[in-house]
Structures are given as structure tokens and as C-alpha cells.
Simulated assay, not measured.
Amino acid sequence: MRVLDVGCANGDLTRAMASLVGRGGEVVGIDSSEEALVSARAIQPDPLSASIRYQRADLSRDLPELGLFDAIVGRRVLMYLPDAAETLARLARLANPGAIMAFQEHARADLPAGLSDLPVHRRWYGLVWDTITAEGGDVTLGYRLADLVHSVGTVIEHARSEGVLIQAWEDSFLPTLVRVMLPRMMEHGVASEDDVDLDSLAQRIDDERLISKGTIFWDLAFLVSGRFS
């Protein structure tokens, strides 16, 4: 198989696809950021995986030079594009007959939720999504994903919503997420360094998580895959 990973960033999904495809196949990862592609190329793929090629690409134009693919995939990329429907229509021109198109996207909801009030978690959920909005991201894209993939001529085979969960007995990923996103929050004026006490944040998150005594429903992810006739 030939697989196209759209908006590959540091290549996490690209390498996962290469592992699934195996030797004899090829996965092409495209992204608009050369910095991200440098990071992706620095990670050695599994020698038993399909060959990987990373390439800079502009999704606002047709890309016939990439050739045709048996699967076109992407994760958290359509929500950042000015016209996701138009981009998918262009990508559909790169699909072989019977090819799969599969994307995972997120959407903002009235979350987090759990067995108790979650003011710390809810504050940071709001700041994360406010940052995505400030960056021009479409915070409703996940709700329209199935319609978008269907509109380019696929028969929808899977349309699922997945809850991103934080469990009471597990270390929370939230402190790491906040640290990673804080520069972006500050750049767009969503939060200032004075608003954030990183030294105590992990403890406050843990305290709230343990008081909750149950699963915290953090976020929604949508996965849609369709197949061309």
C-alpha cells in the first residue's frame, strides 16, 4: 500500500501507518512546517516497517506530484485549515479506486465532567480550547467530520466518537499538556505567565483528580473513515 499522512508534524502517525503497512509499502508524510519535518526525519523508523518519505507541501494547492494512494489519513489537521472541505476534495483526487480516507479530529464540548466539581480541570480545558480558537482552529470540526469525508465521494465505514479519559489511579497528562501549550497561550494573550503557577499546578490537578474518586471525561475525539468506490 501507499499511504499519505496529511499534516504529519513529527511523524507519530506516519510511523504508526508504516508499521501497519509493513515492508514493500510506502508512507508519505506531508506538512507545511519544515521544522516539524526535520524532527520527523530525525527519528529512525522500524526497519520492518514500510519506507517513509517526508515532504513539505502546501495543502492550498493540488499535489499531483505525490502520485496516487491506497489510504489518505490525518490527525488534528483539518481543524486548522481555512477550508477543510476544499482540501479534502483536492486530496480525494489522489485516491486510488477503493482507497480509504480516515481522519481523527477533536471538538470542544461542555467538559471536563466527573463525579465532582472540577474547577482546575475546567479552567485549563477552557484555556486550551481558547488558544486553539485564537490560532484560527475550528473547534467544531469534529462534529462535521463525517459529513466532510462523505462529501468527497466516500462510503462511510466507521464514524466514532471517543472519550479522552483521566483515571484516578493514573498520572495525569494535563500538567505536561499545560507546559507544552503555555508558550502558545502567552503568544495569543489567552494566559500570562503570572496566571500560571506551574510549580503547584501538578499538585492541584492531582488533588482535584483524587477528590473526584472516579473517571474524568476530559475531551472528545472523532474518527471517521470512508472508502472510495
Rank of each mutant, 00 (worst) to 15 (best):
M1Y: 07
V6T: 07
V6F: 05
V6M: 07
G7K: 03
L13C: 01
R15N: 01
A16M: 12
M17A: 15
M17S: 10
R23Q: 10
G24M: 02
V27W: 07
V28T: 15
D31T: 06
E34K: 09
E35M: 05
A36P: 00
A36Q: 13
A36E: 11
L37E: 06
A40P: 11
I43G: 01
D46E: 08
A50Y: 01
A50C: 00
I52E: 13
I52L: 08
R53C: 00
Y54E: 05
Y54I: 01
L59T: 08
S60Y: 07
S60D: 14
R61F: 10
L63Q: 13
P64V: 14
L66E: 12
L68C: 08
L68Y: 11
F69V: 07
I72M: 03
V73T: 15
R75E: 08
L78C: 04
L78K: 05
L78N: 03
M79K: 02
L81S: 05
L81R: 03
D83R: 12
A85H: 06
A85T: 03
E86C: 04
A89P: 00
L91C: 06
A92V: 00
L94W: 08
L94V: 03
A95H: 01
I100M: 10
M101P: 02
A102C: 14
F103N: 04
E105T: 06
H106Q: 11
A107E: 03
R108N: 06
A109G: 13
A109E: 14
D110P: 01
D110N: 13
L111Y: 13
P112D: 12
L115A: 12
S116N: 13
L118G: 12
P119V: 14
R122P: 00
R122K: 14
R123V: 01
R123N: 08
W124T: 02
Y125G: 01
G126W: 04
V128H: 01
V128W: 02
V128R: 00
D130N: 11
D130P: 01
T131Q: 09
T133V: 14
A134S: 09
A134Q: 09
G137P: 11
T140V: 13
T140H: 15
R144P: 10
R144W: 04
L145E: 08
A146Q: 15
A146P: 04
D147A: 15
H150L: 11
V152H: 04
V155Y: 01
V155C: 04
A159D: 14
A159N: 14
G163V: 02
L165V: 14
Q167L: 15
W169D: 12
W169V: 10
E170Q: 14
D171S: 13
D171V: 07
V178C: 07
M181Y: 06
L182G: 03
L182C: 02
M185I: 01
H188W: 07
V190D: 05
V190A: 03
A191M: 12
S192K: 01
D194Q: 13
D194W: 08
D197N: 15
L198A: 11
L201W: 05
A202C: 03
R204F: 01
I205A: 02
D206M: 06
D207P: 04
I211N: 12
K213V: 05
K213P: 00
F217K: 12
W218N: 10
D219S: 15
L220S: 11
V224I: 15
S225M: 15
G226T: 09
F228C: 07
F228K: 11
F228L: 15
F228T: 14
